[in-house]
Design a protein around this nucleic acid. Structure first.
Length: 439
RNA sequence: UCCUCAGUAGCUCAAUGGCAGAGCAUCCGGCUGUUAACCGGAGGGUUGUAGGUUCGAGUCCUACCUGAGGAGCCA
């Protein structure tokens, strides 16, 4: 091998495998400390952080001078020898021989996000840069793992991915507000759920799921709401409410276990106490709506029977369990038109909400669907929904209808819970909230 | 939509109705092991906008704008 051979580029996460070797690392300057004739640049490459050491006498004079003036987030490449260093964060350090700058951030316009504190408005305004911080990187890695685990779960269980359209002709549920768009002279709406379409694909494929963005134009302004969020929605032919609940708890248990297995370092970076996550094992507790109301009242809540659970009620209830709890059989009148009534108590819907522990609220909502044609038509009329718009949906009950059911799981709420963070806005790269459409 | 709170240097925040300040960031200098390094120095302001009260307003009043927290609704 020629003595002039250029050393290979390595990712920082693999630095430990190259101890004693000369390598090149490229990335962005995370921080730079100076101590006389020593420079300590910390490089960030998306896979980790690594500190390099530049001695004034072991690198060319011009290189040292240039490095001394480097500003935060300048992009660069460092050639050097990897050395085990117990004091370094990753356990390894780079003894620099040379340093090449790709782009020096000008001092007149320094990188706005400094290592100190910032307010949320400023950070949101600079979301495109905020993503580079260690905390955001850790959250996005966990989001990636959640999505990977969800798809792995369904794919390994015989489900077929069959995505629903994002542009739709009418409301899936009459209640929520929709974003309206102009569609070649007609009105169209951004989907708020792929469920109705998933029912059609389930009749074709048996077990299906769709996974994509959904939109709600509600003026909700809380830590649990985005106007654009990602939802995974399985739908299963022949499934009844018990099957839906069992599927939901198996999915959540798998996702939690997968994140615990693959994201230890990221959870640690977020200072997430993983003990509550370790508890998440099957089976999850199941209580009826009636029991939930009793428990909430006994715990000092003031909810009225017959209404939906509020955010505070959910927290009171979830605090009584060490893992997610499933609340089933809500009063039919507070739930969607397509939910199958309980045969023994027709005023109740065969539905289930899963509440995450630690006050993270509802992460799953699902039900057994009405499969009887006449009952479904009656419900559509009762809710004053346009029957003609649901013609294709009613067809599913005209041609070999069977009991079926499914649920929707909000990815951002699951990620927020697993990360132990306050607000869902940090769980998606570019959040859309009622008052923010930028960047 | 409703309720509450906040807007002062690039950022995070101080300033009894009486001279607009500090830390970080940036620039200059010092230091051969720094860990949000440290030490010394410099530059940096139409106090969100428009009115009003007052001898005097960052501070009090009114309206508006922007943002945050919460409620309702939801995943």
């Amino acid at each position: 091998m020629a003595s002039e051979a250029v050393p290979p580029f390595i990712e920082i996460r693999h630095a430990g495998e190259h101890a004693g070797q000369e390598v090149r690392v490229r990335g962005w300057l995370y921080n730079l400390r100076e101590s006389g004739k020593l420079l300590f640049p910390i490089l960030r490459d998306g896979t980790g952080l690594m500190q390099a050491v530049l001695f004034k006498k072991t690198v060319p004079e011009a290189v040292f001078e240039q490095a001394r003036h480097l500003t935060q987030e300048s992009s660069l490449e460092i050639r050097g020898v990897v050395r085990a260093e117990p004091r370094a964060p990753g356990g390894f350090e780079l003894d620099a021989r040379d340093l090449t700058v790709y782009d020096a951030v000008p001092a007149e316009h320094p990188y706005p996000i400094t290592p100190k504190e910032h307010g949320i408005e400023f950070l949101m305004e600079h979301r495109h840069l905020w993503l580079r911080s260690q905390r955001q990187v850790a959250i996005l890695r966990i989001r990636h793992q959640v999505i990977r685990a969800v798809r792995e779960f369904f794919d390994n269980d015989g489900f077929i991915l069959a995505d629903a359209p994002i542009l739709t002709p009418a409301a899936c549920e009459g209640t929520s507000t929709l974003f309206e768009v102009e569609y070649f002279g007609e009105k169209a709406y951004l989907t708020q759920s792929g469920q109705l379409y998933a029912e059609a694909t389930a009749m074709a494929l048996g077990k299906t799921y769709c996974f994509g963005p959904t939109f709600r134009a509600e003026k909700s302004k809380t830590r649990r709401h985005l106007t654009e969020f990602w939802m995974v929605e399985p739908e299963v032919a022949f499934a009844q409410l018990d099957d839906v609940m069992h599927l939901a708890e198996r999915l959540v248990a798998h996702v939690v276990a997968s994140v615990l297995e693959h994201c230890r370092a990221d959870l640690a970076a977020l200072e997430r106490n993983t003990a509550p996550l370790e508890n998440v094992a099957l089976p999850f507790p199941r209580i009826t709506y009636d029991e939930a109301v009793e428990r909430i009242r006994a715990a000092g809540g003031t909810m009225e029977y017959g209404t939906d659970l509020g955010g505070g009620d959910e927290t009171i209830l979830a605090q009584q369990f060490d893992r997610p709890v499933m609340v089933h059989r809500y009063p039919a009148k507070v739930k969607a038109f397509y939910m199958q009534p309980d045969a023994e108590r027709p005023d109740l819907a065969l539905c289930v909400d899963m509440l995450a522990p630690e006050g993270y609220g509802e992460i799953i909502g699902g039900s057994q669907r009405i499969h009887d044609l006449e009952l479904l038509r009656a419900r559509i009329r009762e809710q004053n929904l346009p029957e003609e718009a649901f013609g294709w949906y009613l067809d599913l009950r005209r041609f070999g209808t069977v009991p079926h059911g499914g649920f929707g799981m909000g990815i951002e709420r699951v990620v927020a819970w697993l990360c132990g963070i306050e607000h869902v806005r940090e769980t998606i790269p570019f959040p859309r909230t009622i008052y923010r459409l930028f960047p």
